[in-house]
Write a protein that binds this DNA or RNA. Structure first.
Lengths: 346, 346
DNA sequence: CTGAAAGCGCTTACAG
DNA sequence: CTGAAAGCGCTTACAG
């Protein structure tokens, strides 16, 4: 009500400082600071007085002042090194973004979104990080030769990658899923259901999920004693359109195909389109298993049987690894298990 | 190469300060600061010397120190007040998020992602904002009675909403699209193409996009002299599933339906599913127009004719309005035009 | 366990 | 146009 009248540029009401709290509690500002930083070396009486004073004054720490002396910002960048299209289309990104935001929030750390899709954006993001605005980075990148990762390493900025960072496996921390095992689960499920001609649509072969899921599929085929000719495999790039196109080629080439394992849910949605358009039914004529258990799996008709990536846990582990690096621990890798989720498509 | 050996907790190489630049340039630190802040009241000679020194030392300003004295953080929160599901499913969010990130980046301001879907998250986000960590907020909310908006106003934090903030139209800045006009464009197109029984699937009626698109649809029907019975309208909640269900009801009730205007692309995708499953073709039997021109429109089969929301421009205008508020301008509203995008579905 | 004091790296009146 | 100085709000040895 008193509010905006005559306000010029932004100006907020003056916030209480540590000095105000000290006065209220009848102690020095050093003591207040000690309470703020864990309460070590503080008498119970002083502790109580300060806590009460904090409540009364409504004090909240000024992070800029704190960061100025500690040289830490307590903030983390979520660095998305993807071309525009993938960022928009891939349903996994929002899930991962939300997971990381939540996991960070639990430690009262904000997430800065940095989009580094183009060369120009990459440059800006690196400059930003060089400027020391953040303590660490969560790196989402699918490119094998991503320059951002080199720059980050050169700067000594703690970094955790999502998925195996090809070429930096030893040097940068990462959390990934057991790709091959997930593919085995999917393929074995198809084989056990009595499918004999099981094709696959892979992801890009220069990415871990591309290579390793194919390897797992081949393992499972061999274990089941099924044929595994090269003609059973087509490649996609994780987009829905590429899944549709790859499936079209498979269908044209292999009329007796009765199942397909697709390396992402989004591609699987495209594959189902192609199957239905070819006049065949899912799962009646062709059983389909996807990968990710992304929101796309639930939007698919029929509902998609898929290999779940535990996104919530992946996010939390990424954050945990990053915090560990802040504390001086060496970069580590975490490999998480997948789980087959049975729905209607297979 | 010298790098990590023996590194304990995080520690980066010491960065040059303003003092180093001053020494290098042979001026005082006040002069360096003046150069940094626009170069006003600085002689050409001093300006040149300082610029050179900045380059030589590789100096980059310490934002914490600056913020401590200016009391401004130069960072903005993107506050997403949506239930989990919508955040994951709605293809508009990534587009908007990217647009705002880019627009902010052009001003060298980082975007902090704040997710306030649950009550608990809302509480945390408000605390964070109360702590003074950000200068302003971009608010994405579809709820009519959202408490976050009240808190933001009470705190006097400059805020810009995406879409008309019901109940706060006069008090908080916003940028929205001309909803009714967009709906008119869609409906008129259908009428001009010779469709006579044009139904509609709306969004939630407690949201501007729900109400106003319905109004525009009715206007256009009246202008075209077409029937506009209440039985032609069904309501959805912007999810794909709700679009499919609503379309199912429409089809069951109105066998002679030959067109439908759906208030979001995602619901339109669901509607197409329902139409095809009912054994009818798109656009042959039923023409479909969506709303948004989100990535979903391009993933749809057939490609979706839709009403484009200019997301890039919406993002830029939101950021512009926010910066204007930082400079003391009163909250303003920006209404942007829509554009009908003709593709295959109608 | 506690207080007084130095210092983090900046900006900005102030005096000249 | 420029420099000396105060001060933003904190943390952290240091001495007691």
């Amino acid at each position: 009500v008193s509010g905006n009248a005559g306000r010029g540029a932004i100006e907020r009401r003056a916030r209480p400082t540590i000095e105000d709290v000290a006065a209220e509690a009848g102690v020095s500002r050093g003591t207040v600071s000690r309470v703020l930083n864990g309460g070590i070396n503080v008498s119970p009486a002083a502790l109580a007085a300060v806590k009460k004073a904090i409540k009364q004054t409504g004090y909240v720490v000024n992070h800029h002042a704190r960061s100025l002396v500690t040289q830490r910002s307590r903030s983390v960048a979520f660095v998305l090194c993807e071309p525009q299209e993938r960022f928009f289309e891939d349903p996994n990104f929002p899930v991962l973004l939300r997971g990381c935001t939540q996991a960070l929030a639990e430690h009262d750390m904000p997430l800065l979104l940095s989009i580094a899709g183009t060369e120009q954006e990459r440059e800006r993001v690196v400059r930003f990080i060089e400027a020391g605005h953040i303590d660490g980075a969560l790196l989402i990148s699918t490119h094998a030769g991503n320059p951002v990762i080199d720059r980050l390493r050169a700067l000594g900025v703690p970094t955790v990658a999502c998925g195996l960072p090809i070429g930096h496996e030893q040097a940068v921390a990462y959390v990934a899923v057991n790709e091959a095992e997930g593919a085995r689960q999917a393929t074995t499920h198809l084989a056990k259901a009595g499918r004999r001609r099981i094709a696959m649509v892979t992801g890009p072969m220069d990415m871990p999920g591309g290579r390793d899921r194919l390897a797992g599929y081949r393992d499972a085929l061999a274990a089941a004693g099924l044929e595994a000719g090269a003609d059973l495999v087509e490649h996609g790039d994780y987009t829905q359109a590429s899944g549709e196109a790859a499936m079209g080629r498979l269908l044209a080439r292999l009329p007796d195909l009765d199942a397909v394992f697709v390396a992402s849910d989004l591609m699987a949605v495209g594959a189902i389109d192609a199957i239905v358009r070819a006049g065949r039914s899912v799962p009646g004529d062709v059983a389909v298993v996807g990968f990710d258990d992304s929101p796309a799996a639930l939007a698919a008709r029929p509902l998609l049987t898929t290999v779940r990536q535990p996104w919530g846990r992946i996010s939390r582990e990424m954050v945990r690894l990053l915090l560990a690096e802040f504390d001086g621990q060496e970069p580590a890798a975490v490999i998480l298990p997948t789980e087959l989720v049975l729905r209607a498509s297979a």
